[in-house]
Write a protein that binds this DNA or RNA. Structure first.
Lengths: 242, 242
DNA sequence: AGCCGCCGTGATGGTTCTGTGACACATCAG
DNA sequence: CTGATGTGTCACAGAACCATCACGGCGGCT
């Protein structure tokens, strides 16, 4: 079964209008993605059976097999590769149909390339995350007697207790731990963890810090690893840094 | 067609409120950018047809043609100059509207100058041509046995004590340290640190100098680094200059 | 349907930072 | 020397911000 983890920066573009396809492909490549492109639904399904990728850009209006059908078939196969629908019509009902077919997002044509790139980035960010977690082979973070395994969302805390991290907890921890000693603003965290079009309050971030402290700090009220930077954000210290 | 490649360090500010525009322009110039400014949407479009730049700072609420419309027109022209929206409303949905209009980022007023500068830098950094941020940035400042890391708002003073600088302290120190040996007036400091919409008294500046002296001077009463220029302002000396 | 765990928000209380006034001291003009 | 003006220093109050808790919504699982 295909999983996006295998080729997270690889994108398949399914679009029958050659000019549009070329433009999209070009721009995605310029952003550093690997891109393949096919022109109809059947070929898309064939390609996806033989290969894997991190995202499918799927035009709804396709000759032969339309985009919704492609996506449904894909899901029936057990393939969970993220799908971003492109459609000519602005009909919001299409969005619902797309989501029902198992799509992840939806963009109405004509769209701005910039917006497309933003959405692609947002969708792939999730997988970027898995990738970097496994890439840093020793994807086990150690600090102050704690041990965190990002692959399994698992951790063992300083006092020996096993901890099952939630997804958000793990992501926040990871973003912080990527830049030890540096300040990470709440906005950074929101953007990196939640994405560009979701707006939880900054209070939410505080809460996750609170949870991380409870899990990993010996004295959560006097944190040594998850430090507050007043007026800005937080900073992660792994060691006995002073 | 305009591309940011031509003038990557050039910024156009489109803002109708003169005082805000002045503050923003001044701060951007101090960071080393070339800055032009116009006061309404039509002039912005005219300017952008005749010139090119690396970034447009675009107020949403403008007389005549609003910011979204300016951006849309720009994109229809095929101009992909990055656009950073400024808006009076804090409504996060505006961010999406801005992105849909073809913008690159979005900042709600009232914003902190520091944040504005960070975002400007982030956007311009996407273009490889623009490598180095401002001089004092990211660097570690050393003087008289002290060590200041502006990235982390942290410092170690001559006697070895760790110092957690507050935001304002760090900013004032940075502005002073950018021009070692030069006189910086209180008005300059107010403009650079507090920005466009706050007007503390000059007394406040004195107080922050006091705090900096306490942190970093061996004998705060006889300062060797944070010197008073009577009747004008202050001057920062990094070395043993006297 | 019912249960449970995760997530986001609001309220509350405590902490830190910031700006100001007061007063003493320093500097300058005459 | 004397007054006028600017600065050093301190303490304080208000503002801004954060930690923490409790609660409700939502979705997944049984």
């Amino acid at each position: 079964m295909n999983t996006p983890a295998e080729h997270p920066r690889h994108i398949l573009v399914v679009e029958d209008e050659p000019h549009l396809a070329a433009g999209v492909v070009e721009n995605l490549r310029a952003e550093g993605y690997e891109v393949d492109s096919v022109a109809d639904g059947q070929r898309a399904l064939d390609w996806l059976q033989a290969n894997s990728c991190g995202l499918v850009l799927l035009d709804v209006m396709l000759p032969e097999v339309d985009g919704f059908a492609v996506c449904r078939t894909l899901r029936e196969r057990g393939d969970n590769t993220p799908v971003l629908f492109l459609t000519a019509r602005g009909d919001p009902a299409d969005r619902v149909r797309g989501l029902e077919a198992g799509g992840d997002d939806y963009l109405a044509k004509p769209f701005h390339l910039r917006e497309l790139l933003l959405r692609v980035r947002a969708i792939l960010r999730r997988w970027d995350w898995y990738q970097s977690a496994s890439a840093a082979d020793g994807a086990v973070l150690r600090f102050g007697g704690n041990e965190v395994d990002f692959r399994a969302f698992r951790a063992r805390s300083w006092n020996g207790f096993a901890q099952e991290l939630t997804e958000k907890e793990a992501m926040i921890l990871k973003v912080l731990a990527e830049r030890p000693g540096e300040i990470v603003s709440r906005e950074d965290l929101l953007e990196r963890v939640w994405g560009y079009d979701v707006f939880p309050s900054t209070r939410t971030v505080d809460n996750f810090i609170l949870r991380l402290r409870k899990r990993f700090e010996r004295d959560p009220a006097n944190p040594r690893h998850f430090l507050t930077v007043w007026g800005v954000g937080y900073r992660f210290m792994s060691g006995a840094g002073s």
